[in-house]
């Protein structure tokens, strides 16, 4: 058996690979549900009911998809340029810190100015958090994977310090949490009496804008060229370093928006458990979305279904909730296999 490079790749093939990876992952999940002593069919039924079975379930899935679209975009934008930003978790918290700093009374504006202002500061905070790692990689050849990963731990400790110390809400009865975001800064609900907020729409619009930028602008083309071959891009006169810096700012900014919308849309205040690893899950979302901004929207909804549904399933049939994390991780590996089969065909030697 050997691999032979395909001469041409039909444009639909990568999407088939991604869909196949999703199905393969669900098959693997079925084995794990069976291993936990439950029936996979009942398990999947409970999962779907948990994610779609009621108005509440559907809005909950949308609410969970919101930060995943943002962190998925953060990873997709960076990975497309082969910039390995694994620091979305930290950048998410940087965005949450920024909205907490400005949105808890420091500045008061009417909502139509306050909300955009908070989103912008979160975006800037996320981007600036990633910037040093971009510069270290471009100018000192310091591997960005490790620096972005390590920065996650530093920022979460910083959040812990602020929430237990100077930023602690005195009315929170001992829980380490930040002061409440002022009413003018809170995102309105999309569906009344639910947790689905305007952040979902903002996330979808962001994905569409990024898709247009990637497919219609010189900057979008430059990013793709840098990802395919950095030295060829440099020879073709593309400002490689400038492009990577912009991509880094945009990627970090998207992760910052995830933290902002979770804080001003969902929770209303900053906590230490604001993100159960949305930054890392964003990598799976990006892979499953084929690093395409529109693909990211659908991948984020798929992963949100898994998260919300698996939670309901584990309550119903007693399968550990960690199953959701296993499924998310399996998608990453399954997509990788799929993408290899896109680039190469398997030839049986005979």
């Amino acid at each position: 058996m050997r691999f032979e490079a395909r001469e041409t790749i039909p444009h639909w093939l990568p999407w088939m690979a991604v869909a196949g990876a999703g199905i393969g992952t669900l098959c693997f999940a079925a084995i794990l549900i069976a291993a936990a002593g439950a029936s996979p069919l009942v398990g999947f039924r409970e999962l779907l009911i948990g994610a779609f079975g009621s108005r509440n379930a559907i809005t909950e899935t949308g609410a969970t998809a919101t930060p995943l679209i943002f962190t998925g975009l953060a990873a997709a934008i960076a990975f497309r340029a082969k910039f390995w930003n694994i620091g979305a978790e930290g950048q998410l918290y940087a965005g949450a810190l920024a909205v907490t700093y400005f949105g808890t009374g420091l500045i008061e504006l009417p909502p139509f100015l306050m909300i955009p202002f908070l989103l912008i500061v979160a975006c800037v905070a996320g981007g600036l958090t990633l910037l040093p790692m971009v510069l270290l990689r471009q100018f000192m050849r310091v591997d960005e994977v490790v620096t972005t990963l390590l920065t996650n731990f530093v920022i979460i400790l910083l959040v812990s310090y602020l929430l237990e110390g100077p930023w602690k809400d005195p009315y929170s009865l001992g829980w380490p949490q930040g002061a409440a975001i002022i009413d003018a800064g809170a995102l309105p609900q999309l569906v009344p009496r639910s947790r689905l907020h305007l952040g979902f729409a903002i996330a979808v619009v962001s994905a569409i804008i990024i898709w247009l930028v990637q497919s219609r602008t010189v900057f979008g083309f430059a990013g793709k060229a840098v990802g395919l071959n950095q030295s060829a891009a440099r020879h073709a006169g593309i400002p490689v370093t400038k492009t990577i810096i912009c991509i880094g700012l945009l990627s970090g900014g998207m992760a910052g928006l995830a933290g902002a919308t979770e804080t001003i849309g969902l929770k209303g205040y900053l906590t230490l458990d604001l993100s159960p690893g949305f930054g890392y899950t964003g990598i799976a979302v990006a892979m499953l979305g084929n690093l395409h901004p529109i693909g990211v929207i659908f991948a984020a909804i798929f992963i949100a279904i898994i998260y919300v549904g698996a939670d309901a399933m584990s309550r119903a049939i007693d399968v550990p909730t960690y199953l959701a994390d296993v499924i998310v991780a399996t998608t990453v590996l399954a997509v990788l296999i799929g993408l290899v089969l896109v680039r190469y065909r398997v030839v049986m030697r005979g």
């Binding site: 890392y280 990598i283 799976a284 892979m287 994390d325 991780a329 990453v332 590996l333 990788l336």
Partner: peptide
């Protein structure tokens, strides 16, 4: 990506 996938 494989490494991150294996870690997850």
């Amino acid at each position: 990506v494989t490494g991150i996938g294996i870690t997850l």
